Simulated assay, not measured.
Amino acid sequence: MSVRSSYEAGVPCWVDLSSPDVQASVAFYGEIFGWSAEMVDDPAAGGYGQFVHNGKRVAGVGPIMAEGMPPVWNVYVATEDAAVTADRVKNAGGTVVMEPMRVFDEGTMAVFQGGDGSFFSVWEAGNHKGAELVNEPGAFCWNELVTRDPEAATSFYTTVFGWTPKRTAMEGMTYTEWLVDDKSIAGMIEMSPNYPEGTPSHWATYFAVADLDATISKAQSLGATILIDSMDSPPGRFGMLIDPQGAALSVIQLTETA
């Protein structure tokens, strides 16, 4: 289902961009995805805003808040109780980077680091339920953990969220799908030697596009660095890029929408 008004606990429900230049990011993503941005006027929001596509909220954007933090697309997993999730993170060997914090009447967020070193956030919904549009061009459609330690990641995320790993052998590697109630909600892959030395375990976000070649070409013309211009996968052809402000993302032309 592409239009969403709620998310089951344990399912990725939101993504947002931490950018060193919010206005430049708004301009870039407006060009490649057709997004507009609605920025929050309240100074207490810290310059945060939301990307809108076809009248639906699809992602967030805001300035980098912590010194030394790189530009990054952040992944949020839905939870019924952020404080309970924080306790699970601690018990599973993870780190609480930011304790649960109420965000106006929108909901409660928290930031954690998993046992494999990956950072992620959780969202306990209030008025804001998460992305209102997913799995179609102009919206995020997949989140994938790229990890240096699949065993540690499996132990950690199954403990925290109750995810079930489903492993598939693919061309000399193992791909893991994370399942919630037998539904595939995210993926995991061991980091390949092609990544630069020192690249930490991280969550990657995929955005669906109608025309991969046109999107990659447009992104490159706007200053993005193209890491992969086209690669086949079971869901469709995808590419990987680094936006002009330094955040990595993937784009995919799905063979069919969900």
Rank of each mutant, 00 (worst) to 15 (best):
M65S: 11
N74A: 14
W35D: 01
P71G: 07
P43Y: 10
P70W: 03
D16P: 01
G47V: 09
V61D: 01
M39Y: 10
A24L: 09
V52L: 02
Q50L: 11
M39N: 08
E8Q: 13
P70R: 05
M69G: 03
E67Y: 07
E8C: 03
P43K: 08
S36F: 13
P63V: 04
E8S: 10
G62L: 02
M39R: 12
A37R: 06
Q50F: 12
P70Y: 03
A45I: 06
S25T: 12
H53P: 05
S19Q: 00
A44R: 12
S36A: 14
S25M: 12
M65D: 09
A45P: 05
S19C: 01
G46D: 02
S36G: 15
I32S: 13
C13Y: 01
A24N: 09
W73S: 00
A27H: 12
Y48H: 09
I64V: 11
A9Q: 08
P43F: 11
A24V: 05
F33Y: 13
E67S: 12
P71E: 07
G60W: 03
P43S: 09
V61A: 04
L17A: 02
W35G: 05
Y48M: 07
Q50H: 08
E67M: 09
D21M: 05
P63D: 00
W35L: 08
G47I: 10
P71F: 06
Y7I: 05
S18P: 00
W14I: 01
A27G: 11
N74K: 13
M39V: 14
C13Q: 00
N54D: 15
I32H: 13
A66C: 04
S36V: 15
Y29E: 04
V52F: 01
V75Q: 10
Q23H: 13
W14A: 01
V72R: 13
G10D: 01
G10I: 01
E38N: 15
A66R: 15
D16H: 01
P63E: 04
F51W: 05
V52D: 01
D42N: 15
F28I: 09
W35E: 02
V22C: 07
G62D: 00
A37E: 07
F51T: 05
M69F: 12
F28R: 09
D42S: 15
V11R: 02
P71N: 09
A9F: 02
G47F: 09
